[in-house]
Design a protein around this nucleic acid. Sequence first.
DNA 1: CACGAAGCGGAGGCTTAGTCTCCGCTTGGC
DNA 2: GCCAAGCGGAGACTAAGCCTCCGCTTCGTG
Lengths: 226, 226
Amino acid sequence: MSHMPLRAVTDDAERPLRADAERNRRRILEVAAEVFARRGLSVTLDDIAREAGLGVGTVYRRFPDKEHLIDALFEARIEELVAVADAGLENPDPLAGLVHFLERGMELQATDRGLKELMHNTGLGAKRVAHARSMMAPRVLKMVARAHASGQLRGDVAGPDMPLITLMIGSIMDATREVRPDVWRRLLTIVIDGLRAQPDVATPMPVAPLAIDEVPRVMGAPKSRR
Amino acid sequence: MSHMPLRAVTDDAERPLRADAERNRRRILEVAAEVFARRGLSVTLDDIAREAGLGVGTVYRRFPDKEHLIDALFEARIEELVAVADAGLENPDPLAGLVHFLERGMELQATDRGLKELMHNTGLGAKRVAHARSMMAPRVLKMVARAHASGQLRGDVAGPDMPLITLMIGSIMDATREVRPDVWRRLLTIVIDGLRAQPDVATPMPVAPLAIDEVPRVMGAPKSRR
DNA sequence: CACGAAGCGGAGGCTTAGTCTCCGCTTGGC
DNA sequence: GCCAAGCGGAGACTAAGCCTCCGCTTCGTG
């Protein structure tokens, strides 16, 4: 499940690594991407080493700390998010653009727990994330403005409500990941319908609700880190 | 800011405590209620001792661990939540009942961070919370059923969506507490409008949106524990 | 093909944080 | 006035994460 091309190696021109070292470097990146996506940013470099079948020392030699590794990995993913915003902006139907932006953006986060945590919890990758946000903010504002102008979006929602919506939906992902990893789509549907100016008819729900006996597992869970 | 009566003392009939000990016991309960409400359940008993101006030993002598203290404190608060559900059930307008239940329930959680964490994160107070949930579930289901029957609630929402809504709004509280502790009301408004079957007109927003420069503080925050 | 430099592994040191115990001193109440 | 009850808080203990260090292995060049 490698998410991205693991872009060209050794970009900062140093003498090339020995073949085995280079092989390990790629392996670390590859495994780290998978592990961050699956278990979030709280995994330790020790975890990653173990999953990669390498010693901790090998990992630390190449990436001084988690910050560096994250930085190397998430540049591309963050660009994807920006691209989704651009796509939303280009949609001829302004509200549809906003809706797709929310849906696609949340899908990206649903498939990559690390990305989700980068955008929300943060502290980690602060520099990249600050940059990402500065790219997103004007795009989101513009999407909202367009949707307002077209009269499709309720007048009293504001641009800054959007990141809160992604935060909210993200919390659903966290809670339900191990039980029903797609229920967040229901909640997003509800929220989106709540954003419409004239919601003549409700958008049909994309997935089934939680079963009653799934509720305690979602709400009262120790939220494992696997 | 004592939230409740600190109900009658020494209910398990043992020989009465010495006057100073009893005084301290009450003080611990009082301070703990305030501190849990303000800073959440993650505060340590050592914290509580310090805030109460007592030694750690004194606290641990009376309450073997945090679990016991929480159990002693939150029984009443949880009953309040159930009472709110009952009130919703008695509202002649079924959807209004459900809406008030959500609003009042979230208000309780907004003013008591400990209560919010009990209901959501849990692990702590598991017994009480399990009981609370078993009280809530049928009431919520009934509220939803009534609102469906009246045709006011969109047909495809289900009872189990409700706790997810409270979870979502709770995550907004966590994120915004230190910046704009009332913005959650906006998001709840949006969600509620998204729940209506025929939302001829959007409910007016109860509070202002986040300012653009408040967004990074909300999203990228180290989320202090003060 | 041998030998030095490059790289490897992972035990374990260090730090941070929380939980709770222990015991010498203080105080309430008979 | 005496002593059981209670107090305070230093510090022992545990749990986790982060990262270093150094003896051993492997690469790749001469």
